[in-house]
Each structure stands twice: as structure tokens, then as C-alpha cells.
Design a protein around this nucleic acid. Sequence first.
DNA 1: AATCTCGGAGAACAGTTGTTAACTGCATGG
DNA 2: CCATGCAGTTAACAACTGTTCTCCGAGATT
Lengths: 219, 219
Amino acid sequence: MSHILDGPAPGARQAQKQKTRQALLDAALRLLEEQSLSSLGLREVTRAAGVAPTAFYRHFRDTADLGVALVEEALGSLHTTLVATLAATGDGEERITAAVDLIAAYVRAYPAHARFIAREQHGGVKRVREAIGAQLTLFAQEVAAQFAKEPEAAGWSEDDLLMLARMYVDHMVMTASALLETDDDGPVTDTARRQLRLVGLGRLHWLDAPALDEPVRGN
Amino acid sequence: MSHILDGPAPGARQAQKQKTRQALLDAALRLLEEQSLSSLGLREVTRAAGVAPTAFYRHFRDTADLGVALVEEALGSLHTTLVATLAATGDGEERITAAVDLIAAYVRAYPAHARFIAREQHGGVKRVREAIGAQLTLFAQEVAAQFAKEPEAAGWSEDDLLMLARMYVDHMVMTASALLETDDDGPVTDTARRQLRLVGLGRLHWLDAPALDEPVRGN
DNA sequence: AATCTCGGAGAACAGTTGTTAACTGCATGG
DNA sequence: CCATGCAGTTAACAACTGTTCTCCGAGATT
């Protein structure tokens, strides 16, 4: 263990603090596999983490606050990975496989994190819902920005690109949730790939359609 | 009112029972607008319904049981409406508008029910999750069956039709959830229509693609 | 008219919750 | 080297939870 980077200025004291903080996050995440955040008790978490109830307040105001921290932990590191995956693959079937594999790998590596996001995306705690929504919107913007760089995006409005990107992002969350409720990934990833293929086909022919800016309102 | 099927005896007594049962369901649904089912307390519900805590047991074993009843109340009557809407409209833009309008009307008419479904679809109570999942699968099967009757489905495998239908159903739930978090339906329904248009375009060109039963595994 | 059924009320239980206050010990900065 | 800051502990609180048992009174049954 090197002491060079964590010792000098910061303090080995904060290391211990973040250690218990992480213990609280881990304990909470484990408990959240079988319940929702809005029913997660402060004492429940501290008990599972092996610390006194009052220690909780040194790190979080309440369980909603802890939930927001969990959102960052679950989604924060995914931005670079996602964008890198999209940038590294071309269009079409190759990219579809890469995207589905990415999410399947994530769900298998961090099932509790994935479950937490899928569950609390529409959950009962407003601040957490908003935090997840903001992250997903950010994902969509990043995906749209990546799309914009590619030749296939010629003629697309910014709004339509964002609409397309949101569809991909929302589909990822749906796929993750579906993966969590099965033990055989095969059928789920297969369906996910076919659905992405369908959207990709629609994308290819999007500009074939006549102008729909002001569709017939006769009805 | 027919008395033949209700049971052994008609009874104005059972009317009062179902009245309090409905009071419990209504009270629960109201409380669930700001929390998840897994944190919904039995006493909380009875207090809001204006009955004694012990009265709860005359109707439900626990709050999870009540949740399953809410799923039926929220989704049960929607099957006929959905199928009728699909059957009454042709393909293309007309059907897209009809479908989006249907879900927007539902969300506006029964916001608490819609919120409950969106929230508990991935929520912390297994039995309720399963009940919602079963209903949505049923929806998908009904939609797929309707699709199968139409000329556009020629050449489609049963599996692909179900995949397409699931996509529509899941997209409906997503749209409902998005509508619940905004007060201006315009942008949301607009995006939803464009996304459906995209999927519809993909559907039209689905058979153009080469056989993908055994895609290249070189990777 | 007498009896039975059963939805609902009331009281009490042991256990849990979030939050406050005052405390201990140790790493840290002067 | 000592005083300060602060992560974590202990104790206590009023409030709340799900559940059981007992009882009541008004339909329903005969």
C-alpha cells in the first residue's frame, strides 16, 4: 500500500471517514435489493454497516441524501465508458452488439447498482428521481452529440437527434431492468438487439418521409 | 343489479364491505403519490381511510396484497380500450396519434393509477412487480395478436411481432411516466409521436434486411 | 322471533423508528 | 507537545409500527 498519494496533505483521517461512508453506501445498496429507498431506514442502514445510528448524520442528512450519492456512484463512471464505446464502433450491427454487451456487462458486474437505478428512476423519493433523470438526460445529450459527428446524421435536426438518443438511453434502462429479472441473458439480449435493429432501420429511412412539421390536424 | 352471480345471498351487507374496501384502495392510492408501496404502512392507510387499523385485515393480508388489487384496478379495464383503439384505426400516423392520445387521456384521468404502475413496475415488492409484469405481457400479446391480423404483418415471425408489440407497450409506460413529471403535455406527446413514427418506419423496412438469424460472430 | 355471521372497533403488546444530547478518543495543526 | 476538531459512541425520548385478542352490533338465515 503506497502512502505517498493519500498521506501528505489530505490526512489519513479522512480516509477512515470515507471508509465508513462507503460502508454505509454498500450496506444501503444491499438492503435496497429487496425494498425501495422510501422504506429504507436510517437505523437499518447503520446496523447493516456496523456503526452507531448517529454516525449516519456525519455523512448524510437523511436517506434521500444517501440515495443521491448512490446515483452518482452508479452512473457517474458510466459516461466515459458509454461515449467511448459509441466512438469506437461504427454504425449498424457492430454498434448494436457493442451497446447491448456493454449494458449486459454492467448489469452482471454491478447488479445492485443497476437495480437501484431502474427502481428509483420512478421511485417515491423526488430528489433521487430528479438526480437520475438529470443523469439520463446527460447521457442522451452525450449520445446525441456523438451521433451528430457521424455522416448518418446529415439532414437531422438537433431535436430529432436528441429524440433518437433518448430512445436509445431509455431502451438501455429497460433492457437492464429486464436482465435483472431473468437468469438467462440470452433471450433478453436477443430481443434488445432486434429492437435496436428496428430503431436503426427507422433511422435510416427517417428522411424518406414527407415533411411532418405540421401534420394534418383534421381529426 | 343481477343477484344471480354475486354469491349465495344478495346482501346489502356486502355493498358496505366493498365500500370500505374501496375507501382503503383510494386512501392507499393517494398516499402512494408521494412514496413507494414498500414504505406504505397498514395503519397509515386505515387512518387515511377513516377506519380502525384492524379493519384492514378483513380485506387484505398485508399492503403487498392491497398493491396487487391496485394493479388490477389500474390496468384491468384498459385491455378492451387498448385493443378497441388499435382495431378502430388503420396503420400509420392516424394510429400513432390515437395511441398517444389514449395514453395521455388515461394519465390525465387517472394520474394516481398511472403513477402507481410506473413506480411499482420496478418497485421493491415482488408480488406487485410480477402482477404488473404479467399485465404488460398480456397487453403485448394482445397488441401482437392485433398486428397479426393486418396485411403489414405479412412475412413477420410470431416472435418478431411480439418483440414489436412489447416495444410499443413499454414505450407507452415510458410516455405515461414522462407525462406525469411535466405539466405541459405538448413536448412529451410530440416526442412520443416521433418515436413511434421512427419505430413504424423501421417496421416498414424490417423485411428489407438480409437474414440475421445467424449473424456474423467474428468478434 | 331467535340465532348465527361477520365487518368493524377498541385496547394492549413488543418492537422499531428518527432525532437530540452529552460523551470519548484519536489524528492533526499550531 | 499540547490543544483543538471531529468521526463515532452511548443513552434516552416520544412517536409510530404490525399483530393479537376481545368485544360489539347490525345484516342474514332459519
